[in-house]
Design a protein around this nucleic acid. Sequence first.
RNA 1: GCCAGCGUAGCUCAGUCGGUAGAGCAGCUGAUUUGUAAUCAGCGGGUCGGGGGUUCGAAUCCCUUCGCUGGCUCCA
Length: 640
Amino acid sequence: MEELIRIKVEDSIFFIKKGTPLSQILSELPISEKPILFRSEGVLLDLSYPADRERELSLVFAGDPEALEVLRHSASHLLAHAVTDLFPGIQVGIGPAIENGFYYDFLRETPFTPEDLEVIEKRMREIAEQDQPINRLILNKEEAIRIFKERGQDLKVELIQEKGGSEVSCYQQGNFIDFCLGPHLPSTGHIKHFKLLSVSGAYWKGDERGPQLQRIYGTAFFTQKELDDYLNFLEEAKKRDHRRLGQELELYSTNEDLGAGLIIWHPKGAIIRHLIETFWKEEHLKDGYDFIYSPHIAKLDLWKRSGHTEFYDAMFPPLEFEGFKYQLKPMNCPFHIMAYKSRQRSYRELPLRWAELGTVYRYERSGVLHGLLRVRGFTQDDAHIFCRGDQLEDEIKGVIRLATKLLKAFGFENYQVYLATRPEKYVGRLEDWNKAEKALEEALKSSGLSYQIDEGEGVFYGPKIDIKIKDAIGRLWQCTTVQLDFNLAERFDLTYVGEDGNFHRPFLIHRALLGSMERFFGVLIEHYKGNFPLWLAPVQMVILPIAERHEAYARELQSVFRAEGLRVQVDDSREKVNKKIREAELQKIPLIAVVGDKEISNRSISLRIHGQGDRGQIEVESLIPKVKTLIQNKSLDINF
RNA sequence: GCCAGCGUAGCUCAGUCGGUAGAGCAGCUGAUUUGUAAUCAGCGGGUCGGGGGUUCGAAUCCCUUCGCUGGCUCCA
């Protein structure tokens, strides 16, 4: 007698034969739309999943957020299906869904071209339109290996041998078959709104010594609108690209003759950096920090003692002169430590909070360099805090408070916070680790920030907190990092004399809030889309005389405004006002003051605000305090 | 570092089959004296990223090197 399996769906209960597809029950359900997946105990299952045991099922429909990953995974199979159709003999690697889409890796002698992508996408649409069923197959391992061997899919054979149990699951659509856990959509016809985006190289299993595969990236959504929205988002991100805006707004440049990854800050970028740094210094002084300046190179022996020569692989080669080797600094810590060690320290003077906008040099591999975001010479907003164990929690609280205060001033209010704890290989004493991890977590709890714990993801020398900020279009950027360092404290034998007259080891906290000036500036440019708030705008106001006879008035106003501390320019080009306005708008200057006969007669200006258009006449004397208030408050918008 | 693509005037780009390099914007000069997103005209501007090779002849083909871009790897 055949075994019947009890299946509960919503309020209905079914008994179906063991091994038959769960989808059998669908015809009995009073539903107008067919689901694409089942959910059972929080796990998604194929519609064709065989009834194996008593289950309670819920239905998952197209458009359900958790089904998106399945859609994209099925889209990656569709991609591999099309590619194996079009390029016989090609080997397929792996093809998962990823955050914004999917990819599939292929092994092939000749790389794909952009034209290939078009052809592949076309073939994908054909297969999708044929609405081929996607079938789940359970094969025993030897059989699966035989099938993929026959097909010349050696990479898959390797995967099955590594990952497969005695039985392996495979998915098959038409003549394409893939080793895969699933689940998948019921048929290719459900994949309607997708687009292939790019092709790049990728290492097999992420190993740079292994073969290099061709990776095709794409994305897929349940509706055309979502796909369009995503493609628009990519366009929007392009418009915000700091490399493009950096050039258009003359903020910074790089130059082949200087060397890769080295940044020249032009006057308009430099003034912004100056303003950020001034703000940063003021806030640090308020929080009881002292400042340090340290040199850019130090004897190689210092870096041997710190362990950098042994553990840090981004150091430039050393320089040699007068019989000594010197090292360009990749970090500031050893210098601050030298300052600490310059004399004996007492428990009474802790905590010491020593900050430095310290410029460091790292030999980043050429392929990873990227605009301002990944460079070889950069200035960290660094600080090291030396404190006692009983001060640890308060110090970390203070760092988090200062970090969020600074970030909020720039309009970053949403964070993702991670606490990374002790990894398997670590240095330092276990009790110190425990104490530090507890202090970090307590500080996070009291900060009110939500956070997640990355168990065992800390670096070997200490636990850390990382804060990622969310920018204006929802992208995440890593800026703040707070790290305990048991390694350097040990290596440099840091001590203080305690109340008991004995030597004790201080805790060393290493922290950067904005990360680096270069990186933070790059993020800021994209966040603001080049529209810097008034307090940061390189040129806060441009005065546009309508005709030559108004220039004297424009100049007079310029000096009046300058005397008030405003950054003001006059556009005295022999152009029409329309042209001058266009130029000012393209330069994203926040305030545009048009002056002509009318304005001279009542000592006013006609105000135009970037992004807001003409705001009418306003008297000079009433304008000045309003503008100054906006600047003083670091207002992110201009509202009079 | 690896795979792929790209590098032409300050910027954005065109340049066919290998046959003496072009446009728009910007710049300069002149005219225009202008009221809320491009006034008109003229002029100057290039070792076609650098180096080497093939060829009667190279922006174009080949090699090499530097830089940039998208990924990969890396970011103790």
